[in-house]
Amino acid sequence: MAKRKWTVADMPLQTGRLAIITGATSGIGYEAALALAGAGAHVVLAARDEGKAQRAMWSIRQVHPAASLEFRPLDTARLSSVREFGTRWRDERPPIDVLLLNAGIASVPRREETADGFERQLVTNYLGHFTLTGLLLADVRLSSASRIVEVASLAHRRGQIRFDDLQLRRSYSAQDAYRQSKLAMLMFGLELDRRLRAAGSPILSVPVHPGVAKTDITRRGDRAGAVERLAGRAIFSLLGQSAARGALPLLYGATSPDAHGGHYYGPDGLWEAWGYPTTADVAPHARDQATAKRLWSISEDLTGVSYL
Rank of each mutant, 00 (worst) to 15 (best):
M1N: 05
T7I: 12
A9E: 15
P12C: 06
R17F: 02
L18R: 12
G27M: 03
L36G: 00
A37Y: 02
A39V: 00
L45H: 10
A47L: 04
R55E: 15
A66D: 09
L69E: 08
E70A: 06
T76P: 11
T76E: 11
A77D: 10
L79V: 04
E84R: 15
R88F: 07
D91W: 04
R93A: 14
P95D: 08
L100S: 11
V108I: 15
R110F: 01
R111M: 11
T114L: 08
G117A: 14
G117Y: 08
R120K: 15
Q121V: 13
T124I: 10
N125Y: 07
L132K: 00
L136V: 12
A138S: 15
V140M: 10
L142P: 02
S143L: 00
R147N: 04
I148W: 04
E150Q: 15
A152V: 11
L154W: 13
H156T: 12
R158T: 15
R158V: 12
G159S: 13
D164I: 13
S173L: 12
S181K: 09
S181M: 05
S181G: 10
K182V: 08
L190F: 10
D193G: 00
S201V: 01
S201C: 03
L204S: 14
L204Y: 03
T215F: 07
R219C: 09
R219T: 07
V227T: 07
E228R: 08
R229E: 13
I235F: 12
G240C: 11
Q241S: 05
Q241M: 09
S242V: 03
A243Q: 00
A243N: 01
A247G: 11
A247K: 03
P249T: 05
L250V: 08
S256N: 09
G262F: 05
Y264L: 07
G266Y: 11
G275E: 03
Y276L: 07
Y276K: 10
A283P: 02
R287S: 15
A290Y: 07
K293W: 02
K293I: 05
K293C: 07
S299N: 06
E300W: 03
L302M: 14
V305T: 14
Y307H: 08
